[in-house]
């Protein structure tokens, strides 16, 4: 199943992995190493913090079987709400996805129906891309599910970087065995995220590039996901435009709004 989901929240997650919830974490039982990691990740989170946003993103997917390009408009409010609507191609125009808390709906203009995401669709592809719906749903739980630590601090390939290693908590319901995130030391801008399975073999690589000024901040405008098993395939997300602090009321993220063109 490829259901369109919380786009921007997802994108932000992919770029920095962690979001607001880091701030509210209790540090009582954590090690010094973890405290430091969480603190830095909090700073990164601050960098990306936005109460609301509106953006235009183009997604390019290349697989052995098809190539596709989709342009979407996205709105987000806080952590809990997001709405994404396809602008092109014409065939899928108007298709929209609403994420409200834990619940995800998809509106299909062709058949004028709204469908709620069920457990059976979780591991399906998102929009024909290399992400699954599960990736999107789990995004907001990242801080609860992983214990971060600083794995490396120093120069690598001529750049000063920080490398965070995220290990899943023993009982966390996550499919990854480890996530490794590399960020630039001075700006905390993400460079690469590596996803490992339980046997610690690399499953996919996410790289960030094209650092530009957008919405008053410096952000990587391009993100590319490559599955390790199919090195010739990839999914690329390109930010055309993003605005932070836009005024979107909570009522904007409703089923009624979902159907509106």
């Amino acid at each position: 199943m490829n259901l369109k989901l919380n786009h921007v929240a997802f994108l932000l997650f992919l770029m920095v992995v962690l979001s607001l919830t880091w701030a509210s974490m209790s540090f009582a039982t954590t090690t010094d190493d973890e405290v430091r990691a969480r603190l830095i990740l909090d700073l990164i989170d601050d960098l990306w913090r936005a109460d609301s946003s509106e953006s235009t993103v183009t997604m390019r997917v290349v697989t052995a079987n098809y190539r596709r390009t989709v342009t979407m408009q996205n709105w987000t409010l806080g952590k809990n709400y997001s709405l994404v609507r396809i602008v092109s191609p014409q065939k899928e125009k108007g298709t929209a996805t609403l994420k409200s808390g834990n619940v995800i709906y998809t509106y299909l203009p062709k058949t004028d129906r709204t469908i709620r995401l069920t457990s059976g669709m979780m591991m399906g592809s998102w929009m024909g891309s290399h992400f699954t719906n599960d990736d999107l749903v789990k995004e907001s739980r990242m801080a609860d599910d992983y214990i971060p630590r600083l794995g490396f601090e120093g120069d690598r390939e001529g750049r000063s970087i920080l490398e965070f290693i995220l290990e899943p908590k023993p009982e966390a319901p996550v499919v990854w065995g480890r996530v490794v995130i590399t960020v630039l030391a001075e700006s905390y801008l993400p460079l690469v995220s590596l996803y490992y399975d339980e046997d610690l073999s690399l499953v996919r690589t996410v790289t960030f590039s094209d650092f530009v000024e957008m919405g008053g901040r410096t952000l990587p405008a391009r993100l590319r996901v490559v599955p390790t098993e199919e090195p010739d395939e990839y999914t690329e997300l390109i930010y055309e435009d993003i605005r932070f602090g836009v005024l979107v009321p909570e009522s904007f993220f409703s089923l009624q709004q979902l159907r509106r063109q």
């Binding site: 997917v61 697989t63 079987n65 299909l108 058949t111 024909g128």
Partner: peptide, 13 residues
């Protein structure tokens, strides 16, 4: 609803 061969969202009544 399904994912079509071209990666698009197949849906029909």
């Amino acid at each position: 609803v399904s994912q079509a061969g071209d990666g698009s969202m197949a849906n029909e009544l």
